[in-house]
Design a binder for these strands. Structure first.
Length: 315
RNA sequence: GGGGGUGCGCCGGAGUUGGAGAGCCGGGCCAGACUGUAAAUCUGGUGUCUCUGACUGAAUAGGUUCGAGUCCUAUCACCCCCA
């Protein structure tokens, strides 16, 4: 299976990943796995920029709308699901695309996480409650007992990280840091990482326009029906949060739209930072699809050298 | 035209009874971290410079004072009231 190629397309929201991936997947007669932590939910559609029905029809997509906002889905689950699907897809295709804006999900697939047991959600929730009642310093004090080694490297003001470490340490009876080997997992396929990039000004213009398009596409209705569920983690999401404030009379609609555009820009910045520091990814503007095809072809032909010409897959 | 008020940071707010502001809070912006909440969560920076230090700075120009963002005068801008 080592002559299979996974083409990963990352980049900030609104840069044009979806369109490009569909174009490329159609060109190579293959399929797409989406790596997007919000498009995975069947209840979220317009506001998370899911591919349109026509697009989904043109190229088969995986891991879009396959779980519900009521569940507890994590990057680890995503990696398992994606790898399972990849195994099937690679039995049909030589090239498969993995595209999406959730850096951690992509990383989990291409590099792998360290082996760790599943932690019951209740333990996590208990520490979260503890944190809300006692504050971050109290988490640090507890971690000092359970995993002093990790405490030396963890961001002590980040409750999410502290809670994770406490939950793992408590549930397993072993320090969280003892599981953290940080070694990359070998994958039975080759990986071509590509990140899409645009000048900041242009990207932000596209983001602003995209938000307006979502509104005219009926996002407000979608969000209104989810308003009663605003406490769910899956709805701690750019756009939905602001629309909820609009429904609650905290913001006017124009204010909410402006706030969504702003939050989206800030989110995009965080994604840019992530990929900027993920090592040697090939960076392209999304309209340089020709050069991208070239580099894919190059890698495809170079893989498992001498293994014969590439075969076209039948649909 | 007359009277009153306000004026410092990219923006909003707070505050200074004449006694140390490169400076409080929030936002924005820039930069960063991130191995199971990741569209989440968290951190730093944000006048200028020859940058471990120095310089300039409270609308503008003067004045009073040991000392002015604070008091006085003029000018400018904006707001309110009367014409």
């Amino acid at each position: 299976m080592s002559n299979k190629l996974l083409v990963v397309i990352g980049g900030p929201t609104g840069v044009g990943k979806t369109d490009l991936a569909i174009q490329l997947a159609a060109h190579y007669h293959t399929e797409i796995i989406s790596a997007d932590s919000r498009q995975i939910y069947k209840e979220l559609n317009i506001g998370v920029g899911r591919p349109s029905l026509a697009q989904l029809d043109a190229v088969p997509h995986h891991l879009v709308g396959h779980t519900t906002i009521f569940g507890h889905y994590t990057a680890g689950h995503f990696a398992d699901d994606a790898l399972n699907i990849l195994e099937k897809l690679f039995s049909l295709h030589d090239i498969v695309f993995l595209t999406g804006g959730t850096g951690l999900y992509v990383k989990a697939v291409i590099e792998g996480f360290d082996e760790m047991p599943d932690i019951p959600i209740e333990i996590n929730e208990r520490w979260t409650t503890y944190w809300k009642e006692n504050g971050t310093e109290a988490l640090v004090a507890n971690l000092q007992k359970l995993d002093p080694d990790y405490l030396e490297i963890v961001d002590k003001s980040n409750p999410i990280r502290l809670i994770r470490a406490l939950a793992v340490s408590e549930a397993t009876g072993k320090p969280y840091s003892s599981f953290r080997k940080g070694k990359q997992t070998e994958r039975p396929f080759q990986i071509l990482p590509i990140v899409l990039d645009l000048p900041r000004e242009e990207l932000f213009k596209r983001i602003d326009q995209r938000v307006l398009n979502m509104i005219t596409s009926g996002w407000e209705e979608e969000a209104r029906s989810l308003h009663p569920l605003k406490h769910l983690k899956a709805l701690q999401t750019v756009g939905y949060k602001e629309l909820f404030e609009y429904f609650e009379g905290i913001l006017t609609l124009p204010q909410a739209i402006a706030a969504i555009q702003q939050s989206t820009r800030r989110y995009a910045k965080r994604q840019i930072t992530w990929w900027r520091h993920q090592g040697s990814w090939h960076s392209f503007s999304p309209d340089h699809d020709k050069s991208i095809v070239d580099i894919i072809d190059f890698h495809f032909n170079a893989r498992g050298k001498g293994q014969g010409a590439r075969s076209k897959d039948e649909p």
